[in-house]
Computed example of a mutant assay.
Amino acid sequence: MCILFIAVNQHRDYPLIIAANRDEFHQRATAFGHWWGTQPPILAGKDLVAGGTWMGITETGRLAALTNIRDPERQNDEAVSRGKLVTDCLKNNHTTTEFMHILKATRTKYNGYNLLFGEWHDLHVYNNHINELVSLDEGVHGLSNAALNSPWPKTTKGMQALSDYCQRHASLHSEALFDILRDDVKASDHELPRTGVPYHWEKLLSSTFIVTPEYGTRTSTVLMINQQGKVTWEERYFNAEGTKIHSDHFSFTLV
């Protein structure tokens, strides 16, 4: 998962809204979203290479999602797959303090990541590069391939779009949230972050929705939880041309 826009208590009907894109190499085998046969059951897609996932939720509303930190100088090709962190969070009923001890103790085993995790009404973000935990306050947050709410053009643009939509519309529609995720406008050269990748890739990766033959936005996910605890989970999957090839819709009430 490479970008998430998160609205906490920004709409009267939906205390939590997440709009997220997963960017990945197109050759990496992936299963569409489904209920895993685990205890507790997990709703998520699956990385068929390493067995983990990029975002998921349980029947009780435990939630986790991952973004990579872009820092090629610190890349370790022998590191453990970061998708395991999401499944570990969802499968185990650790308290925040317990899970933080685990994350801190194992943080050097993984390449850079941000992990969003917790109960849906009490979410936190852990960044293993700076070894920092941040609790999500009320507001709109953006999480891409740097620290939480870093002012990258696509992050601030998406945060503003989500904030505006929540404030201006009494009824929310997932199509408008998917439109935010579909933004393929690249940042101006002077706005580009400097993360250590070549200019060509910095430019390609500067849009919310990414299309290249090798790497791009594979999945867009919209998650909404209303005041009554009803969860709506919608996903769209894309090919290397950015064409939608599959969509899923799940709805359930938290137990």
Rank of each mutant, 00 (worst) to 15 (best):
M159H: 04
K157A: 15
G216Y: 04
D183V: 08
V231Q: 00
N226A: 07
G242K: 01
V231P: 00
A170E: 12
W120E: 05
N131S: 14
H190T: 15
L192I: 05
Q227A: 09
V197H: 07
G242L: 01
D179K: 10
L148P: 09
I130W: 00
H121L: 06
E175I: 02
I180L: 08
D189M: 06
L115F: 10
K186Q: 15
T219R: 07
T217H: 07
E175S: 14
N239K: 01
T232G: 04
T232D: 07
C166L: 08
K157T: 15
L136S: 11
N145S: 10
V140S: 12
T155M: 09
S171H: 06
G118M: 09
K186G: 06
Y199M: 07
F117N: 10
L204S: 05
G229R: 06
L205C: 06
L162E: 04
I245A: 00
A146M: 07
V185F: 02
H246V: 00
I180F: 08
L148E: 15
L205N: 09
H169Q: 13
W233T: 01
E191V: 01
I225A: 04
V197N: 10
S174V: 02
L204P: 00
E138L: 01
K244C: 14
L115M: 09
N239S: 00
Y199T: 02
A240N: 02
L143T: 08
G139D: 15
K203P: 00
L148I: 05
A146C: 05
L223E: 06
G139P: 14
T208V: 12
Y199W: 10
G142L: 04
W201A: 03
V211N: 03
E175N: 12
H121W: 03
T155H: 04
